[in-house]
């Protein structure tokens, strides 16, 4: 899907650091990207790559000692980083919603599902409890929860994991936000449930014209869903572009490495090739290209910082990108 009009979200040179006793930990390091209206963007990386922190940075939900130290986050043209906490609260849940990874943990165990939905409606709209309840019920119906009226009075422990994630999605949909940030919402679920939820979110995003940032470590999931893909490594976006282009002709050796480590993406008979080594600790990242220690193409020049190259709708940070015949 191509986006029309100005982008919903523009992230410009955002860095989020965690102040620890051993120095600043650069969880997100000079990250820039845009999300167009109705666009689905996949943000991919290993755990610890900073992808979740990127999502929390947008919503202003980075827990101390973490802090967004620089950059701009323009949402419909307005810089979220300059907003007062109370103004920010009117954005959260209303214009930008978030779905978390573990549905077992995101709902408050001692409050009924109805209470947790109604409070979300009433936090942003001055409506009666009855109306808030009706809207909550409709949202539950929308995500495919049977007999939503009765289920409003149920407590989270009475739902299965998949159903709880549907509830979380219903909460995210209550205000028809412009943007939903989904942080690995299917990772904790069984495989069969995963694809249902995946399909459900894609359908609802299209139906309500919402943009979506899908954070995942799973290239396969993102491939099935996203319009565009961004690959993060050690706090930076190392490659970004249209999903087909990135997957079929990866430019960055890291992306290529990720692809050859996925069983489904490797032709039968060819060996899987996991990326050697481990992602560097955020406290001791090598200078220059952080991937160079694990990279088969690295040379001496990689100790300096590679610049972001932009060509034909593709972005990457690498001195030795793969060159494909078509490019």
């Amino acid at each position: 899907m191509t986006s029309i009009g100005p982008p919903v979200l523009e992230v410009r040179n955002v860095s989020t650091h965690f102040m620890t006793r051993r120095g600043a930990l650069k969880a997100v390091d000079d990250v820039s990207f845009t999300v167009g209206q109705r666009e689905i963007v996949g943000l991919v990386g290993e755990s610890g790559s900073g992808k979740s922190i990127t999502g929390f940075s947008i919503l202003g939900l980075v827990d101390p000692p973490g802090r967004v130290v620089s950059g701009q986050i323009l949402f419909n043209g307005e810089d979220l980083l300059k907003m007062s906490p109370s103004a920010m609260r009117t954005i959260r849940g209303k214009r930008i919603a978030m779905i978390f990874q573990d549905p077992m943990m995101t709902l408050n165990p001692v409050l009924s599902v109805g209470t947790q939905m109604i409070e979300t409606v009433q936090a942003h709209d001055k409506v009666s409890r009855a109306e808030a309840r009706a809207r909550s019920r409709d949202a539950l119906g929308l995500v495919g929860i049977p007999s939503p009226e009765e289920r409003l009075d149920a407590y989270p422990h009475q739902f299965s994991g998949g159903m709880r994630q549907r509830v979380a999605i219903a909460i995210a949909l209550l205000h028809r936000p412009d943007l939903i940030i989904a942080d690995e919402p299917t990772t904790a679920l069984d495989v069969t449930i995963q694809s249902q939820i995946l399909f459900e979110i894609k359908r609802l995003a299209a139906e309500f014209g919402m943009a979506l940032i899908w954070i995942s470590h799973d290239l396969g999931v993102v491939a099935a869903l996203a319009d565009r893909i961004m690959v993060m490594y050690a706090g930076r976006i190392v490659e970004a572009g249209k999903v087909d282009g990135v997957l079929s002709e990866p430019r960055h050796p890291y992306t290529s490495g990720l692809l050859s480590a996925i069983p489904a993406a490797v032709p039968r008979g060819e060996p899987l090739r996991p990326i050697p080594g481990f992602a560097p600790s955020p406290l001791s990242r090598p200078s220059g290209c952080a991937f160079r220690d694990r990279c088969v193409r690295a040379t001496d020049i990689c100790v300096t910082e590679p610049m972001l190259e932009i060509a034909a709708g593709r972005e990457f940070r690498c001195f030795h990108p793969y060159l494909w015949s078509a490019a």
Binding site: L61, T90, R92, G93, K94, F100, T120
Partner: peptide, 11 residues
Amino acid sequence: DFVKFARAKGI
């Protein structure tokens, strides 16, 4: 997480 989620809801 549910506290963070509540914040994300704008509570």
